[in-house]
Every structure is written in C-alpha cells, then in structure tokens.
C-alpha cells in the first residue's frame, strides 16, 4: 500500500505549526488505509530534533531535502523536487497547507504529475469500497459543500486550511525514519531570484494564524477608530481583521481583509465590531470557534450567527470591554 504524505513547511529553519496540523489529518487517513504516513520537507537548516517532532506527532517517515538554496520558497525548484519524489515513491495521497506556498506549489505540481487537486478541504475521508480519498470543501462563499474525488489519477492531492485542525499531542516514544534526500543540482531552477523581504512593512501580521481576531467594519466610521481595535487586540493577544468595506475605504491594509475576497480565518474567538455581516464576510469567518458581534442594528446578519451578540453602540461597548480587560479581569 502506498503512503499518505503531508507537505511540511518551514521558515528560517523552523517548522510551521501547520506542518503538525496536517499530520493529524494524515494520520487518520493512513490508519484507515492501514498504511504509513510520511512528511516531506524542503528547506534549509532544520535541526534533527525538529524533524523528530514530526515523527513524534504521527509521521512514520520524514523525507528531508536540504540545501541553502532551498531556504526560501521557489515554486519552480520545489516542484522539480516534488515531481521526482512523487515518481520515485508513488504516494497514495498528498496533503498540503492552503498557505501562500502550498496554494502555489500544489497546482503547479498537480499539472506536472497529471493529477487532480482539491483546494481548502474541510473534511477528508477514505471511501471504504475503493480506498479513494473523499475531499469535502465549501464553495460559492460557503453556500454549498462539495465532496470531490480523484478516482483515476494518483497521487490524490488536497490542500487544507491552516487552523482547521489541532496538531496531535506529541508522543516522545514514537519511532520513525528520517531520510535525508540528497539535493540534486538539476532540480535547481534559478529563474526567479529571491531578493529578501520588504523592510518597511512594519506591524505586519498574518491573521490566518491568530487565535483571537477582533475585526471592524463600516460601523467603525474612520481609520482612526481602528486604534480601538488594535488596543483591544493587544490586550487579548489577538490580531485585527476587517471587512472589505473597511479595507476599501483605506482604514486598514488588505492583508487584514476577511471574507470571500480576502482571507478565511478560523480563530478560537472572533469579535466583529460594526460589521453587519454580508454573505461574503460571513464566508470568511464561519469556521471560527466562537463568534461575538457588536452592532447597534438588531437586524445585522452577523448577530444571527453569533454565539454572543450585543445590540449596542460599539463606541460605548468597546471602551467598556477594554476597561474590563485592562482591569485585570
């Protein structure tokens, strides 16, 4: 039986959290197929200890391709590596994260190995009769859930949103193999040159990773008022999100936009302030664990899906909340 693979991700030699989340998904599939789970990692400077963590979190094997020239993501080079490893090992299924690199690399690889790919799966299962991967994903703004399979092509490939599962509890006694795959010069595609990160991006944050998000909409009225949200998110150790309206008005940058034309987030706690809750925005927050809404319009659609809704003026409610959070609970 061929293996289940997950594509681990690293930055600056550190494994990203999502690498472990994928192992939760992969372990379940491997167990129901009675096969092994392997994690593929391409990068540089990842310690043996960190690689062992992948094993402790459920991988039976780890393939690690290391080279200084692999330190930053290159779709062309990474895909060359993956294509060759796929041909060599012929995995049953490959799961990757729906991150900027996963969402770039996977479709590129899928074309090259001539197989299907399903994006942003929320559920993954094995069809008992055929052993096919059943991939369920929301579409059309979360209005429908489609279950998709790739019956005649291998491997079966899917991406999964970060934060959509918890990482497994590591088991220090778990055994597995770490296989260092030697880097081949022919894999290197130097056409795109990585120049570094922009320096002036300041307080850049990735809201997809936030456990707590406090988001503002049109009801925030002006850019200045987003400082209120910033203070609250600082007190809660969260991040600030926004609706398309707020981003379009220039109150906050696009990287903070949540919804159909922005990011999909799954924090433990989402607080929406002055957000009415368009279908597009709701599509981006539906998978949050707890939704709190603060809006003076009792008819706001966000109130209807919230776990806790306050019908009131956010300019009264937020400062009061801030006071409570600063007042040591």
């Amino acid at each position: 039986m061929s293996y289940i693979w997950t594509l681990a991700e690293q930055a600056n030699g550190h494994l990203k959290q999502v690498s472990f989340e994928l192992l939760t998904r992969g372990r379940k599939l491997a167990d129901s197929l009675d096969t092994k789970l392997a994690s593929l990692l391409i990068g540089n400077g990842v310690s043996a200890e960190a690689l062992r963590e992948l094993i402790q979190s459920g991988a039976d094997e780890v393939y690690y391709v290391e080279d200084p020239r692999l330190a930053s993501f290159s779709c062309e080079t990474y895909s060359n590596i993956m294509v060759e490893l796929i041909k060599t090992y012929q995995p049953h299924t490959i799961l990757a994260a729906a991150t900027s690199s996963g969402r770039t690399l996977m479709p590129y690889v899928a074309v090259k190995v001539k197989t299907g790919l399903t994006a942003d799966c929320t559920e993954l299962d094995i069809e008992e009769t055929t052993g096919n991967l059943l991939q369920t994903r929301p579409a059309i703004g979360g209005n429908i859930l489609a279950t998709i399979k790739t019956p005649n092509h291998r491997p079966q490939m899917a991406t999964v949103r970060p934060k959509s599962t918890r990482p497994p509890e590591p088991d220090a006694d778990r055994d597995g193999k770490i296989i260092n795959v030697p880097f081949k010069e022919e894999w290197l595609d130097g056409r795109v040159e990585f120049l570094g990160y922009r320096k002036d991006a300041g307080d850049f944050e990735n809201i997809e990773e936030a456990d707590i998000i406090i988001a503002g909409g049109k009801g925030m009225k002006k850019a200045e008022n987003f400082k209120m949200l910033r203070r609250l998110s600082d007190s809660l150790e969260g991040m600030v999100g926004a609706t398309r309206d707020a981003v379009d008005r220039g109150w906050i940058g696009y990287s903070h936009q949540i919804g159909l034309s922005g990011k999909t987030v799954s924090p433990k706690l989402y607080i929406g302030a002055g957000i009415s809750g368009s279908i597009q925005h709701l599509a981006g927050i539906k998978t949050s664990e707890i939704i709190v809404s603060i809006n003076n319009d009792p008819e706001a659609p966000l109130h209807k899906i919230a776990d806790f809704a306050i019908v009131g003026d956010l300019f009264n409610v937020l400062p009061e909340l801030q006071k409570r959070l600063e007042g040591g609970k």
């Binding site: 930055a11 993501f73 900027s100 795109v192 990585f194 990160y197 922009r198 850049f204 990773e209 990287s255």
Partner: peptide, 9 residues
C-alpha cells in the same frame, strides 16, 4: 504578499 510579509522577487 505572504504570511511573513512582503517578499521581493
């Protein structure tokens, strides 16, 4: 635009 900020290429 990626998770860590803005890459220049």
């Amino acid at each position: 635009l990626v998770e860590e900020g803005y890459e220049r290429l």
